[in-house]
């Protein structure tokens, strides 16, 4: 609250005087509070109910957690949704995020899939101007990135591209920025490799 700095002279409670059975308060060097932050892929299963999404997103905004992306859709069991959240934070923050998510009554399970081997995919649809020599160039670049052209007009292409988010970024970087008319990305969905299975 108040940021007025107060004198630290006499009168403040100090470590016990010498002769006391306790050691004097060790005025240790300041502990650094800035902890390294990491990108995490958090997967959750939640009840497919009205309001469940807003409980999750509300938690992130209320507690000041970071959301890079959030995707959600029903699973093979229509009563349950699966959500993937990309968040950036220190280990402490990510631990709190998973605990707080677990506490939500609609949330069935939470896993940080980025703790071990996993797969991430994102889909992008990107509409680009495709006229003159650019038409050939965009086609070539899309091929290199294993994208598909899913819509063609005289002057535009829509390229569909799937991959991890860095690949999509790389595609955007690879084509002439002035050609881009629109981009839309789904956000990342993630899944653990092999035997790591997230089920209710």
């Amino acid at each position: 609250m108040s940021s007025v700095s107060r004198p630290t002279g006499a009168g403040y409670a100090r470590a016990p005087a010498s002769g006391s059975p306790l050691p004097a308060l060790p005025w240790l060097p300041k502990i650094s509070t800035s902890k390294p932050t990491m990108r995490h892929v958090i997967s959750l299963l939640l009840e497919n109910e009205a309001g469940a999404l807003s409980r999750v997103s509300g938690l992130f905004s209320a507690r000041g957690y970071n959301i890079e992306s959030l995707t959600v859709a029903a699973t093979e069991d229509p009563s349950m949704s699966r959500m993937t959240i990309i968040s950036i934070g220190s280990d402490d923050v990510i631990e709190q995020i998973t605990k707080q998510l677990n506490k939500l009554v609609d949330v069935v399970k939470v896993v940080d899939v980025s703790e071990a081997a996993h797969i991430e995919r994102e889909l992008m649809l990107i509409k680009v101007r495709a006229t003159g020599k650019d038409r050939e160039e965009v086609k070539r670049t899309a091929d290199i990135f294993r994208g598909h052209i899913v819509d063609v007009t005289e002057s535009t292409y829509i390229v569909e591209l799937t991959g991890d988010p860095t690949k999509l970024d790389a595609f955007i970087g690879a084509i002439d920025r002035t050609l881009i008319l629109e981009t839309v990305r789904t956000g990342v969905c993630g899944i653990g490799r092999g035997d790591r299975i997230l089920r209710a």
Partner: peptide, 20 residues
């Protein structure tokens, strides 16, 4: 009293008016 100002350590107590 005692009082620990917000943001201060638990043992940095103001115990009486003389501490101010």
């Amino acid at each position: 009293y005692p009082m620990v100002q917000g943001g201060k350590g638990l043992t940095e107590m103001i115990l009486a008016p003389e501490d101010l």
